[in-house]
Nucleic acid binder design. Structure first.
Lengths: 241, 241
DNA sequence: TTTAGATGTTGTACTTTTTACACTAATTAT
DNA sequence: ATAATTAGTGTAAAAAGTACAACATCTAAA
């Protein structure tokens, strides 16, 4: 270990980008920092990795300590290591991301490092501290990519949802509009939705049917190597000589 | 910085997975280690990141120092940080990968940390030191994915190549067989190949036409957000009730 | 109670892409 | 000359993607 000690005065952290969806808007969970640097600023929930802790474990622990959220699947996205990204020294950070149903979790925090935790609209953020804006953007890109190749959208919706809600979610993530009939055809043809035979209540128009996601079937298809893909929005070959 | 120093005795490294293609076989560039741990074992070319060096810069520098290869585009893939992955202490490593044309580079090394550098068949490796096998596998998965969505195969072939060579490359990466006529139709329909109006020489059969990759057009299409995709091999919906 | 307003739901024809499949062409070695 | 070997190509059927508009169901307001 002597060699290593000579080499470095450094540290590593994890940062979590947790996406949620609410009021037709894509949100991300931020904490109000309780420590320097950037004390009292809204930032991604992230902290140091313990010496005897794997990265994935650290990400989960930090998320729980800072926001109260536990039992979510976190996926590693990218590592950020610009020399001056942390004002106190050389700190590289491994970014993780996850999708959760906002309603299913109660966000709470009472730690010294995170004074509050709150959902913020992704589209309204643009000056997060450190390189957190860049990290958020990278995770958003990942989400955008992922939603086209896997039916991950369901992770963000309540257990029961309407097709229109699902479409709005896709539109928010892909930042594009989708054609209603084709979207529904495509989604339903995956056979991953269970029609609950219930309808919305309390809306001032024809109530929509409610569906839930067939997670069991999805996992079985995944295990079989099935390929999910959403095609709409793909550019055409026209104009390429 | 005091806080950071208290937190950690740790280090980070970069590891490079450089793929090449030769004799119908997918290869990876390994070095023979000149230092403990795992002295004299074949391993991925990787080393410590300097305190004042960005991760991407470190990856490039390490690759050049250990193998003589410079001027390649390295892409970050994943970070590996299992607590005991390095026998000397806590060391996390950021894995990078790249594709190169073996013929275009002369591999050489004369450093103390890397005694030799050589190409090895990916399929024959299975006990690399550290967690390098896992890193290699992750990069191979990335390549497999990437080849379906971008015409990256050309990066691995000589400047002039035949359609059959290209097909064999795709088959090696995807670990599957492709149907000749459909493959050619698909590839040619991308309009990214320039027919050189030359043919192979010195083969004991009908010589194949030679093509080169139209890099300019590719980069222009990329800039326009064009979507490249190789479809064959996708599973069918059959059997999904 | 009628109607306006809002959103939900569905079908079809057309185009494009994918797939499956087998024969002829060009060259060298014997 | 011919055998051996790989190169090169066309087409029809199936599947998927796209574009498009009318009717259905509910509430709220007149």
């Amino acid at each position: 270990m002597t060699e290593l000690n000579n080499f470095f005065k450094s540290a590593f952290t994890v940062d979590n980008v947790i996406f949620g969806f609410d009021e037709g808007d894509l949100k991300v969970l931020l904490i109000k920092r309780g420590e320097e640097p950037f004390k009292n600023r809204w930032a991604l929930p992230g902290y140091f990795v313990y010496p005897n802790e794997d990265l994935d474990t650290a990400a989960k622990r930090v998320l729980e300590e800072m926001t109260g959220i536990r039992n979510v699947f976190l996926e590693q996205v990218k590592t950020f290591g610009a020399v001056n990204r942390h004002p106190f020294g050389r700190v590289i950070t491994v970014a993780y991301f996850s999708l959760i149903r906002i309603d299913n979790y109660e966000v709470q925090t009472s730690s010294a490092v995170a004074r509050k935790a709150e959902w913020h609209s992704v589209s309204k953020l643009k000056n997060l501290p450190f390189d957190h804006q860049e990290i958020l953007d990278a995770c958003f890109q990942r989400l955008k990519w992922m939603v086209r190749y896997r039916p991950v959208g369901f992770e963000l919706l309540p257990n029961k949802f309407t097709l229109t809600e699902l479409q709005h979610l896709y539109e928010a993530i892909l930042e594009t509009e989708l054609e209603k009939r084709n979207f529904r055809k495509k989604i339903l043809s995956m056979n991953l939705l269970i029609d609950l035979d219930e309808t919305q209540e309390g809306v001032a128009h024809r109530p929509a049917r409610l569906y839930k996601f067939d997670k069991d079937k999805y996992e079985q298809l995944l295990a079989d190597g099935f390929n999910f893909e959403l095609k709409e929005g793909k550019k055409k070959m026209e104009g390429v000589s």
